[in-house]
Design a protein around this nucleic acid. Sequence first.
DNA 1: AATTTTTACTTGTAAATACATGTTTTTTAA
DNA 2: TTAAAAAACATGTATTTACAAGTAAAAATT
Lengths: 238, 238
Amino acid sequence: MGPVKNIPQHKKLYEILRKHITGGIYKEGDLLPSENELCRLYGMTRPTVRQSLSSLASDGYIRKHQGKGSIVHQLPKEIGILSVSGTTSAVGDRNLKTKIIVKPVLIPWKNDFIFPLSELERESGCIYMERLRLLDDIPIFYDISYIANVNLPRITSRQFGNRSLFKILREHYQIEIKGGEQRIKAIPASAKISSFLHLKKGEPVLHLERKMETNNPGLFLYSSIFCNTEKYSIFGRF
Amino acid sequence: MGPVKNIPQHKKLYEILRKHITGGIYKEGDLLPSENELCRLYGMTRPTVRQSLSSLASDGYIRKHQGKGSIVHQLPKEIGILSVSGTTSAVGDRNLKTKIIVKPVLIPWKNDFIFPLSELERESGCIYMERLRLLDDIPIFYDISYIANVNLPRITSRQFGNRSLFKILREHYQIEIKGGEQRIKAIPASAKISSFLHLKKGEPVLHLERKMETNNPGLFLYSSIFCNTEKYSIFGRF
DNA sequence: AATTTTTACTTGTAAATACATGTTTTTTAA
DNA sequence: TTAAAAAACATGTATTTACAAGTAAAAATT
């Protein structure tokens, strides 16, 4: 068993309400119970409840209105930590598949890597993998992931299957994504990318370069993602 | 004079520290004064100081590390509320120009507008404008803005010049952007877009559709933005 | 009956306090 | 001299209390 962490109360309530919203118990436009009511319901004080609500608001699950209350907001569908919204209809519960193109392997970092690296990261080497993600059997994301090889024993030999990389990192290594930064560009599809994403060469592709921070300071996940945005858009809040 | 609002203390400190960071008083990697020190310096209590710091952290200006302190983080250059990072060098203090293509005019909303509209917005009509924004005389953004015509007297006759639309809304109408959502796609440049952005027709263009929330509930800004991302990337945090 | 005022309830801001937990430096002991 | 222990200091979590300000419903007034 991994180390059982003491989860703070405000995080517990955040998770409870988040699941109630994503699970449909609270629907879009619904008014959440008032802060004082949540205090009574879950035995917390108002500052604690407010911390949960403010996290939910900044993550886009609710809107707060002074004098009114907290109103549930519509959510996009999440793939990994990328949100997608369909251009014609809602993504909903569509068929989501992941295909491993290159299984995790340990390689040296490239000299001109897309983000600056720390010495420790450079020395540790790079765990590299490529994945293709499909929605309704249409390839949407071509994903190249890079992680520094620090404290991730046996990761290159793990069975990934359809499970998310993030899930494996969380469950086996207690690593959670806390946030990150990204650069976004529109580029013409290369021969390789176009074949993976079923596009013609030169057609527009969305390119994301991301650096993700984890609860382990010093450990970052990097990814270079190519998206076919013909039918779906990337959705985000700011 | 417009109504002078009581600005909360945590917001004041947020602004002070934000300006110190963007102004270079605190540089990247610097350790901010500790929470208790900030309390003494600005005569606030720790919860108030913490609220400022947590806002700065969620906006990407600092990173907090338990036991260590708050560390200043590198920032991208902001254009409007879009961040840009150069692919070759930092954007820094480059020449930024705004060119009005279509001056603000009042028109009816299109039936198939990019976002769903409330009845009040539909009835009020739409203030429409088009702008081109250049970095070092290279056109980077082609911007179409839509605002519902509610409580914005004389806006169509105002002189915009180089001033930001956001600045005018803030200074003359006390309207501030609180956040929003966006859809991102890569599309081929149309004839019109390609001529504005100095690209060939069909070349990849980044397309953003944004809905921005304001401090006036019910009032939203909408924009459709086309970006030339050949030399610059859109930068964001998540 | 319609309008205005009051009241109750909502979230927002802020202070004072306490203890937990992670990090760094200093002190102490081997 | 080195290594372990303690202290000092950082942020994290949580409670209690108080009042401000926005909203909506109830009550009073016209």
